[in-house]
Design a protein around this nucleic acid. Structure first.
Lengths: 312, 312
DNA sequence: TTGTATGCGTTATCAA
DNA sequence: TTGATAACGCATACAA
């Protein structure tokens, strides 16, 4: 490279890293050489010198029934990261402890510059572990049960979503709207439930038609049956999975996540702006990594995808 | 490290890479030091010296309707790779040309040791590009339209799957079984169709009830309507997407891929052994990477997930 | 504005 | 069986 352009290695490095310091003519000559020789910086060598890998590590998730949105988030993350000059490194882990162990190992070997945590929950040991060590990370999901700004995060406003869904049903004339949720204690589940009850409270309606499930369609269906017996005429659900079960019982149901299943069965559902969320995660992480001042968190609003007008 | 264990750096390296060459006592001392200091080899430094990154690169896919199986394959790949000491690096690309450009760039920067290609098709330029340069790669998907062993691959036997599906319907008493496929020329689609017609031929039945679609549920539904008009009493479909459409027309339908949507709507479907396929991809790649003789390809059989007995 | 020297952490080679 | 040395490619400090 340097020989080809008739300069020193240092000049080449300068052209690439601080172009303004090199004379125009020399710069052009080097740039031509870069082109001609198809030169690319070696990530490994650069990492050895700078200590930065330009790697972002993320755990790849799977769920039992496959009705999740992680794949779309991951795609967005990969794309956004690439735009900022980062690549995404994948790992798997069965639980929080295993994930911490893997992160620890990754840190020693590939030295990712940052981590993206997903599926945050109350008392999340992963966030605590990373924060303790002052490692750069962002979570897709709020620090449930912890102060709002203990670490940077991006999340989707579940409450705003279910509130909009409830209003949608109210506007169609429904007055006895139930909620099929998860067992309490799940930050995400409680948040989604809060939006529903807020909407009802806003119209002076009772928010008593609630039932908890394990998130399966089977329990969703059972819960829906009971709520309908208790007078519910429409249901807001914490997920598409339980909504799918509820849909067997009653037509006016709103799900959450807008999974392919929702589209397939004509289920109205709340769609998370996943590409946007992923992009914001990368933003937060990269500004942190380049010591730029960054906002501490981002809360996005889901949108209601209406697939069928409520009947009454 | 070396100082702590009172040996040279080289001895440490030997303990880690060729333990048999080091005296038992020294080895133990070094191992203790490794433990005490929480030592981990730096991937970057090792890569600089050896030229191997222990990275496998894969493109992350998305489809329009989200009814794909790639996420499960990717999870399996990440897990299997980790077991063999490799990590998965993700990238995105809009088309084959962009993918080749990205692979080229990756090669210069992160220098992945191997690539996993998915969604292979006739005249795939990616496989040709990699093969030309003698780069280690394996594809999940056969080299359609090329000699069987131009490169290592893992695939699922679509024909065997649709043949089993057709037999399933035949056994229930159906005699006029149609096939809803993709436009011809798609290797995967043609293969799946071949299994259906083979099963019918085996019973001396006519394989005339075929229609092509673009893979959407809408076209699946339209095709099903027409085939039913032409006398079909049951349908084998090239994908869950078209099967979903067909299901609106007639109950005895078999899909392909066993996506969450199939489970949601009670659609009988063919399930690909994706974890197994991913594991075999890693096997083929790692044996190639360590110059072990490897089988050239692996063909796996999908299994029929019966969700509803055919009526006859 | 450009060039020289150095070291990041490994491992291969070779000598002891 | 162990140790010394060199080199991978880059970026920084410093000298010219």
């Amino acid at each position: 490279m340097a020989r080809y352009a008739n300069v020193s290695r240092q000049t080449v490095s300068n052209v690439l890293n601080s172009p303004e310091v090199v004379k125009e003519e020399t710069r052009q000559r080097v740039l031509d050489a870069v082109e001609a020789l198809g030169y690319r910086v070696s990530a490994a060598a650069r990492q050895m010198r700078t200590g930065r890998s330009r790697l972002l590590a993320v755990r790849i998730e799977t769920t039992q029934d496959g009705m999740n949105v992680f794949d779309r988030f991951l795609h967005g993350l990969t794309e956004s990261a690439a735009r900022s000059g980062y690549r995404v490194l994948l790992y798997t882990a069965a639980d929080d402890r295993a994930e911490i162990a893997t992160i620890d190992q990754l840190l020693g070997e590939f030295e990712p510059d940052g981590f993206v945590l997903t599926s945050t929950h109350h008392g999340d040991p992963r966030a605590a572990w990373l924060a303790e060590r002052a490692l750069p990370f962002v979570s897709f999901g709020r620090p449930w049960g912890a102060p709002e700004d203990v670490h940077p995060w991006v999340d989707v406003d579940g409450a705003a979503g279910t509130e909009a869904a409830t209003h949608h049903l109210l506007d169609a004339g429904h007055r006895r709207i139930g909620f099929v949720g998860w067992e309490p204690g799940s930050g995400v589940g409680d948040d989604r439930r809060a939006g529903w009850s807020r909407a009802l409270a806003g119209r002076g309606l009772d928010a008593g038609l609630v039932l908890e499930t394990d998130g399966s369609s089977a329990q969703g269906q059972a819960a829906a049956r009971e709520l309908v017996e208790r007078g519910a005429t429409a249901l807001v659900c914490v997920s598409d999975s339980v909504a799918l079960g509820a849909l067997q019982v009653i037509p006016d149901v709103v799900g959450f996540d807008d999974t392919p299943v929702a589209a397939a069965v004509g289920l109205t559902s709340l769609s998370q702006p996943l590409t946007e969320a992923a992009a914001r995660c990368v933003d937060l992480l990269t500004s942190r990594l380049s010591d730029r001042p960054a906002v501490s968190h981002v809360l996005l609003t889901p949108s209601l995808v209406i697939r069928k007008e409520p009947r009454s």
